[in-house]
Computed example of a mutant assay.
Amino acid sequence: MTDWNGAEMERDGIFAGNNPFEIAREWLAEAERTEINDPNAAALATVDAEGLPNVRMVLLKEIGEDSFVFYTNYTSAKGRELTVNPRAAMLLHWKSLRRQLRIRGAVTREEGPAADAYYASRSLGSRLGAWASRQSQPLSSRAALMAEVAKVTAQKGPNPSRPSFWGGFRIAPVEIEFWADGAFRLHDRFVWRRQAGNETWNVERLNP
């Protein structure tokens, strides 16, 4: 359900639709045809135990029915931060389209069949790399990392299982903003907001 709050009449073209996840999937699909590299690259923002913000690029792997999914090592800096404070913000910026998509919400782990399936779809090198890398921990040299990769390759063979310390995170947004560039910096912005666990969205146009 959606409460249009007067914004429905103005939302046409690239902003049209009754489901923000469907609109987001349409924007990503268009970016896949226009962006040269990694159209699913997203800036992920978290905070540490002291409340200090942290941001890095990740790859968005799924826009589900009610969430946005990415994968990582749970012992990485972002994994540890999301364990302490399971809330995050994400930004996708498509320079070729002059658009951006902003997401904020609560985070839960994706450790089931979906995580297993995505891990199995990765290249063998990437699967072995997930085992070998102690992500975000100090590393003495690249040679040490490659030695660990060789060790893991010998141990795990050609079909390694998904590590228990590696999997997905789902962001269930309470806010999704669609932004498109406008002439003279008079951009178009529509934000969808809802309470956590509530299916009802409120949509508003924002000043640029």
Rank of each mutant, 00 (worst) to 15 (best):
F184T: 09
R205H: 14
I103R: 00
A117R: 06
S136F: 03
R193N: 11
L128M: 10
E111P: 01
L97Q: 12
L124R: 07
E22Q: 13
A45Y: 01
Y119D: 04
A7K: 13
E175I: 04
E32Q: 12
I14S: 09
D181T: 07
V152M: 14
Q100G: 08
I171A: 02
Y119C: 06
G64M: 05
Q195I: 03
A114E: 12
I14K: 05
L60Y: 03
T200V: 15
R56D: 03
A89H: 10
P86Q: 08
E62V: 09
F190Y: 15
H187P: 07
V107Y: 05
Y71F: 07
A31E: 00
K95T: 14
R102I: 03
G197R: 05
L52G: 10
E148F: 06
V69D: 04
N37A: 15
I103T: 01
R127E: 03
R33P: 00
R142W: 09
A43M: 13
W179N: 10
E62W: 04
S140N: 14
I23L: 11
M1E: 13
E32H: 14
A132Y: 02
V152Q: 08
M1N: 14
G167T: 03
I36E: 13
P208L: 08
F68R: 02
P160Q: 05
V69W: 01
R189E: 08
R80D: 11
N40L: 08
G79P: 02
G182T: 11
V58S: 03
T108K: 06
W166K: 02
S126Q: 12
